[in-house]
Structure formats: C-alpha cells, structure tokens
Design a protein around this nucleic acid. Structure first.
Ligand SMILES: [Mn+2]
Ligand SMILES: [Mn+2]
Ligand SMILES: [Mn+2]
Ligand SMILES: [Mn+2]
Lengths: 216, 216
DNA sequence: CCAAATTTTTAGACAAGTCTAAAAAAACGA
DNA sequence: TCGTTTTTTTAGACTTGTCTAAAAATTTGG
C-alpha cells in the first residue's frame, strides 16, 4: 500500500508531533538520518497522497488518514517487540532494530493474530502503549523520576531514552518496568537521587532520573 | 547485506536449479514475473558479487556463497510458514505470501530463536524440509501418487503444486500431510485413481495424483 | 547446413529515493 | 529595521531496479 520509505516518514512525523504541533523539515531529516532536501521531496509525495498537510516553509501535520497509518505501524512495531521479548526471550535493549524491519510486514491479519496469540498486551517491553487494531490506546500519564519529591513513590512504567546503553544500564541496576521505587534522598549538589527499590538503595544521576518514567 | 531483489533472484535460481542444472534467463524471468532484460541486468550484478557463475548466453549456476544465501532465505521462509500455521493458526494455503515478506527480515539471531521456540521443526506446513542454520537438510525421497501402482501405499508428505487452490482442494478432501493412503483402483480411461484414506475412498484426477507426493 | 524461430543481451528510458550545491524564504538580532 | 544567519526549497545528479524496442547470439528443423 505504502512504500517502506513512506511508512518511515509517517511514523517519524507522528512521533515528532507528540512534542511539537508542527513538524519541521529539519526535525524529520534528523530523525531519519537523511538530508533536508530528501525530506522536502518526500513531503510533496505524502501531501499528494493526502497523508500530510503541507505548505512550503510551514512544516507539516498528519491528516487523519496519515495518522491512522502511522498508528498501525507503531502497533506492529510494539507488538513485534513484545513478541521478541516475551516469546523469543530477547532482552529489551535488543529488539528495536528487528522491530524496525518487522513493522513493515503488511498483513493486517498477521498482526491481529499475533496480538491474539500474545493475549492482547497493552504495553510494549519499554512501557509504551500498544494501539489496538483501530489505532486506539490509553495514554497513561507518566512523569520522570526527576520530578518526584523526597519520600514520594512511583512504579517504573516507561523510559524517555530508548537507547540500548540506557536500557542495559537500567537492567543492571534492576530498575525494571513494574518495580516500585521511592525517593529516599536527593543530593542537592548534583540533583542526583537515591531510590529505594525493594530492599536495595540505588543512586542515580539527574540524567537517569530525567529519562526514567513512573506512574504515581 | 543483500537487497530484497537480490535475495529473490538467488532464491528463484536455487529453486530452478533443482530441475535444471543450468538456469536460463527466461526461466528466471518467468519465476519472478519480470522481463528477460531485467534479469540480464541483475545477473551481471550477482556475478560481480560472485554469487552466481554467469557467462553471456550460457545460463547461470549458484556459487557456494550464493547457494548458502539462498538456503538461508529458504530456511527463513519455511520457519515463518511453520510459525504462522502452528502458532498463529493460519491454514497452509494462507501463509506463502506472508512468508515471502518475512523471509527478508535479516536478523540471524531472530530466525535461530524462532527455530528454537518451535522446537526445531524439520518440515514446513507443505512438507518441504527446513534447512538448519548451516543450510543442511535431509532431502527425503518423495514420489508422486501418480507413479504408485495398484494396491501400493504411501504417506502423504509433500506437494508439487503450492497454489492456494490446490492446497484448499487437498484440505477439503482430507488429503493432509501425514495421512496414509493406498491405491485401490486406477481408472484406465483417464488415469484417475481411487485412494483409500483411513475409512474413506477418494477419487482423484491424474493432475492431482501428479502433484501430491508420498513417502513409501 | 543454413534460414527461421527463439533466446538473450544491449540501448535507452523511467520511477523511487537519495545526495550536494545553490537559491529563496523566514527568522533572528543589533 | 535591515543585514545576517538559519531553514527550506530547487536544480541537477546518481543508484537500484524496472521497462520496451531493437540488435545479437543461439538453437532448431527442413
Ligand atoms: Mn522500538
Ligand atoms: Mn518499544
Ligand atoms: Mn511458501
Ligand atoms: Mn512452504
């Protein structure tokens, strides 16, 4: 239906739209590791297909149709990640690149059966919500650990940084999705924090605290 | 590593090599639904990469490296087909097109884990052998039902025609992989046959008998 | 064995997606 | 406000893979 390149553009625009209402050419180029000139070319094609709203120099938004397609691709990506972790026993830092390929497998029936096979998971291994076949999902309100106050508690529910390095670090520290944490100290000097996780105390930097998300 | 188009050419050449030692340009064009001129172009590229042995007008054979790649793709195709049937409950006539896409997912680790997850199946849903990670497989000697004589028996173990229509027909007639059959009559007029399958007698045409394979 | 039919290759073109370099528009800032 | 910087678009080129039409090589059969 759409080419692999088109799907990647739509997905990138969707993700960027979560932070900025209007997405710029340069933002897209950075997200896809391509050049602004290439992006402009593709934006014209996507606009012709009415998947995005685009006026020269004005940035873009997804149309309803474009957003629906983006959500289908994100659904596939997250379901495959869940499959790789839960069924094939990959670690959560190993699955993204494979999912980047698998998300382009086109069969709708396949992804629906995969969803059923895994009993309709609501979140991927990184805590991100999995849209249902109609593109609907509940966006849970998560906050960074960095914004918790002393003695406040939360349940680890997501990450802002999806890089393997960060995920591996969290794994090693036992900072895993679902675990309950509590802020037992905040070091004023560098804003680093000490968390109580089950019976252990863990010291994390401000950078880590900003990229680790909890539900409260 | 190799492009999608290159992988499809190598796979096609491999399959055609099973019937003819030297594979012709036109055979490849027919197999891939493309034109002879396009095939010639691609053969030059594959020869440059030393994946095929090619001299103008002489047809092609796979090099050892080319064959290894072809077998990896066939391994992926058949493992995914097995997954789709055994885990996602697709029917054997529904899986080929999806496997045509899935076979190009590049991760070696993924396919090895999938293999393990399914407990190392030896044959795909159509009875075709699944190469192991090194490309090795046992080629069982199958013969068409058409070459059986009166009162000879065999176990349904494969098909020569993989089209959905043929597979659906076999399903409906209960002519399923693993079932034991015995020739109880051969009608001289049109060479059609009557098979005993468990408690029922089934009348099949010569065409069907030629495309249904048994182990004896 | 040679003319005709068939197969294969070459030549030239096109679409998708990318790039660099340069021009145009927009945004910034003194 | 107006010159400078940044962003975006255009222009032109390249790669991959495809096509049609025509030329060249091979095969076939009388
Ligand atoms: Mn991912
Ligand atoms: Mn994820
Ligand atoms: Mn198949
Ligand atoms: Mn098969």
């Amino acid at each position: 239906m759409n080419t692999l390149a088109e799907e990647n553009y739509l997905k990138a625009i969707y993700h960027l739209s979560l932070n900025d209402l209007n997405v710029s050419t340069n933002q897209i180029a950075a997200a896809l590791c391509t050049k602004a000139a290439s992006v402009t070319d593709m934006l014209k094609k996507l606009a012709d297909k009415e998947l995005i709203n685009y006026e020269r120099y004005q940035g873009v938004t997804l149309t309803a149709v474009g957003e629906k397609i983006a959500l289908q691709i994100i659904r596939r990506h997250r379901l495959w990640e869940y499959f790789l972790v839960e069924k094939l026993n990959f670690k959560w830092d190993e699955v993204h690149e494979m999912a980047e390929e698998l998300e382009h497998i086109s069969s709708v029936e396949l992804v629906d059966r995969l969803d059923k096979f895994m009993d309709y998971p609501k979140h991927d291994p990184h805590g991100d919500p999995i849209p249902d076949r109609d593109g609907n999902f509940k966006k849970h309100e998560l906050i960074p650990v960095a914004s918790l106050k002393l003695n406040e508690a939360g349940i680890i529910s997501g990450v802002r940084d999806h890089s393997p390095g960060f995920l591996q670090y969290l794994d090693k520290q036992q900072l895993i999705i679902g675990k309950k944490i509590k802020i037992t100290d905040i070091i004023a000097y560098d804003n680093s924090m000490i968390l109580q996780v089950e019976t252990i105390a863990i010291h994390i930097s401000r950078d880590v605290a900003k990229n680790l998300l909890v539900a409260i």
